[in-house]
Amino acid sequence: MKTKILILIIFILNCGLSFGQSTQFDKINFIIGQWSGTGSGFGNDSSTIESSFELVMDGKYIEVQNDSRFEPTEKNPEGEHHIDKGFISYDKRRQLIVYRQFNNEGYINQYVLNDSLSNGTKLVFESEIIENFVPGGKARWTIEKKSDTQIETTFDVSFPNKDYTCLGVNKLTKK
């Protein structure tokens, strides 16, 4: 009987601890909101970007939307339009924050938040799966809080047996 009571108490305490924080996204909630700004890199001198990070489905997910428009260049006189959408979720089994991203170039990325590189002002998402990219290639997306109303995002890629290279940086202001 004592064993059953002890198991019940442990179960109740465990449930209380897992539901004690207001959301599994507390450590990344500084990104929540609507953002706009400019970018550089990505094979272009400048771009404008609109981003949003919104809690959806009773706060179980963060819906991510990025819409970038790149200025025309000599090589690309029409400019470019990049769209990506995705969801950030919490994988209870692995106890990891996961970001699944789909973009109009046909790449599908699944990132996990690297807790050892992340902190209260910096989030580092590293790819664990990339569809339609160079086999063995990797991607890293970093979001850094500059102030309560400003963030900076950096997108890095790595080809097999190579170090990461920065493809572009976005500076965003909260609307």
Rank of each mutant, 00 (worst) to 15 (best):
G86E: 02
W35H: 09
S51T: 09
I28R: 12
Q34G: 10
T73L: 01
I28H: 12
S47C: 06
G41P: 01
T73A: 01
D45T: 15
I10E: 06
L8W: 07
T73M: 03
G20F: 00
N66V: 00
K75A: 15
K60V: 08
D91F: 03
G16C: 03
S40G: 05
C15I: 08
E80D: 11
I32F: 02
G41W: 06
D84C: 05
I88C: 07
Q65G: 12
S68G: 14
P77C: 08
L17H: 01
V64Q: 07
L55N: 13
P72G: 04
G39Y: 00
G43D: 03
S52N: 14
E74Q: 10
R69I: 07
F11C: 15
N44W: 01
Q65I: 14
T48S: 15
F87W: 12
Q34P: 07
I62E: 07
Q34C: 10
T23E: 00
I10Q: 13
T48Q: 11
Q21G: 08
S47P: 01
Q34D: 11
S52R: 13
G59K: 04
H81Y: 03
G39P: 00
I7W: 14
G39I: 00
S36E: 06
G41M: 00
L17E: 01
S46F: 02
Q24K: 13
T23P: 01
G41N: 00
H81W: 03
I28D: 13
N44P: 00
I28K: 11
D67N: 15
I7F: 13
L17Y: 00
G41T: 01
E78A: 12
H82Y: 13
D84Q: 06
E71R: 13
V64H: 08
G79K: 07
N76Y: 06
S68H: 14
H81G: 05
K60N: 12
T48F: 08
K92V: 07
F11L: 15
S46E: 09
H82G: 11
E54T: 15
P77A: 08
H82I: 11
I83W: 02
I83H: 03
Q34W: 04
N14S: 12
G33T: 02
T48Y: 08
F53Y: 15
W35Y: 11
F11R: 15
F42Q: 00
L55P: 09
S36W: 02
P72W: 06
L17P: 01
N76K: 05
K75W: 10
S22P: 05
D91M: 04
E50Y: 15
D84G: 02
I88N: 06
Q65E: 12
